[in-house]
Amino acid sequence: MSDEMDMEEGGTIKKFMFVNRKAPYGTIYALESLEVVLISAAFEQDVSLAFIDDGVYQLMKNINTDGIEMKSFSKTYRALEGYDIEKLYVERESLEARGLSEDDLVVDVQVVGAAEMADLMNEQDVVLSF
């Protein structure tokens, strides 16, 4: 226990990556993933988000959820910067496979190829996939 306290005081900083591979609204994973991301900001860790496969759909512009009576969390992605969460990686192959480009996304991101994404994942301490 004392070891843990020392680590806390020493300010352990780990690399956390949140991997998003699911589309929004059809299931709750995207929303609840975002809730963990926001909490993680309070722990001052090295946080990044990855959007792969259908996960890229989470970042679409022009989302309007009024007709399905769910709360839109589109704006939250734009608010991440205010929490010092600025590393948003979107996989190029996933965008292309869906006929999308960076211009279709609601927030500034870094578009990376699958090989670079694999490198980024590989260097993480903790990878949480939702």
Partner: peptide, 20 residues
């Protein structure tokens, strides 16, 4: 308890394994 407990587990543990 809160979600902070999950992030804390990520920080404190050598490995965090997800089942879902």
């Amino acid at each position: 308890s809160g979600l902070g407990q999950l992030v804390e587990a990520g920080i404190q543990c050598d490995r965090l394994v997800t089942f879902g």
